[in-house]
């Protein structure tokens, strides 16, 4: 089921075009990476989805209907720049934010108890926000984003400033929420995290979508027929007629396979030549490589 359908949205601020005709759809229960260099227009797109601003043209459908005043109650948004009311007590603060998302006092309390137990911070209820460390504040901020069980969760650089333990905690929460059916938009420029977490991505550059699709599919699309072979002795390796060697060391070879040749043919050829092959795999480009290549190409 489609949770979000964005069609040809554009937004400009006093003449400067921040978003120029972007479209994509996100299905329920997907972790969707919204990628792009700084200033590409990611935040502008997120602000349109969260109804903070409106698109000049184009449309956004959320759960089958156009964005409306009740949409924010089904969306959880963790902005890159975090902020809380410093003087408020943790419990009151979370309760306040939950109620602004439309939860009744009773329901908000229950949800809050659940999350505070889950994050083992039940005894923080009466603490003032500015008494907490930055990492602790991030936990609070994360709870405030998910407390109303949003259908769509938008996380903008959720791991920035988190220690490895909390990063893992949040990561596993993200996966758990996805498994329970939450759709997640994950905005970042940390590519290794994207590969680890995201299933689908859209790459934004200069206000335009330059690339989108399934992560594996994209990697396949941008593969360059590179293979890595590990064998007992790489010295007298001859692959003429199949391709050329890019890199070679003692028992590992990186090679490029010619158009029209298949990997099986190459492997067969190697075996026939009497090489002892211990590993044979295709080298897919990292998202980072795709990212840099695409962004540079468009500029």
């Amino acid at each position: 089921m489609e949770v979000l359908r964005i069609e040809n949205i554009a937004k400009s601020y006093s003449g400067k075009e921040a978003v120029r005709g972007v479209s994509f759809t996100i299905n329920e229960g997907t972790i969707f990476g919204l990628l792009g260099p700084n200033g590409a227009g990611k935040t502008s797109i997120i602000r349109i989805i969260t109804t903070i601003t409106g698109a000049d043209t184009g449309s956004v459908h959320f759960c089958g209907e156009p964005l409306n005043e009740h949409s924010p109650e089904l969306i959880g948004y963790l902005p890159e720049e975090r902020g809380l009311y410093k003087k408020m007590k943790v419990g009151e603060h979370l309760l306040y934010l939950a109620r602004l998302k439309g939860l009744s006092r009773q329901k908000a309390k229950e949800a809050l108890n659940y999350w505070m137990d889950r994050f083992e911070i039940a005894d923080w209820w009466g603490k003032r926000v500015d008494e907490l460390s930055k990492g602790m504040q991030q936990k609070i901020q994360f709870i405030s984003t998910v407390i109303h069980e949003p259908k769509l969760l938008i996380l903008d650089e959720p791991f920035s400033g988190l220690d490895p333990i909390n990063t893992n905690l949040i990561k596993s929460e993200i996966r758990r929420l996805r498994d329970e059916g939450t759709t997640i938009i994950f905005s970042t420029h940390r590519m290794e995290q994207v590969e680890e977490i995201c299933e689908e991505i859209a790459l934004i550059s200069n206000g335009k979508k330059v690339l989108s699709g399934h992560v594996d599919e994209i990697k396949n699309r941008f593969k360059e027929n590179h293979f890595e072979v590990e064998l007992s002795k790489a010295e007298n390796l001859d692959i003429s007629g199949f391709g050329e060697i890019i890199e070679k060391d003692l028992n590992r070879v990186k090679l490029h396979l010619d158009e029209g040749k298949t990997s099986s043919e190459l492997l067969l050829h190697l075996l026939n030549k009497g090489h002892q092959v211990t590993a044979f795999r295709e080298i897919l480009p990292t998202l980072n490589e795709v990212f840099i290549k695409q962004v540079n190409a468009k500029n």
């Binding site: 924010p72 948004y77 405030s144």
Partner: peptide, 16 residues
């Protein structure tokens, strides 16, 4: 203060 502490973006993702 709300602007500087950045809470405002969280707030306006819930209210107008």
């Amino acid at each position: 203060e709300e602007k500087v502490s950045r809470i405002v973006e969280v707030m306006i993702s819930s209210v107008k």
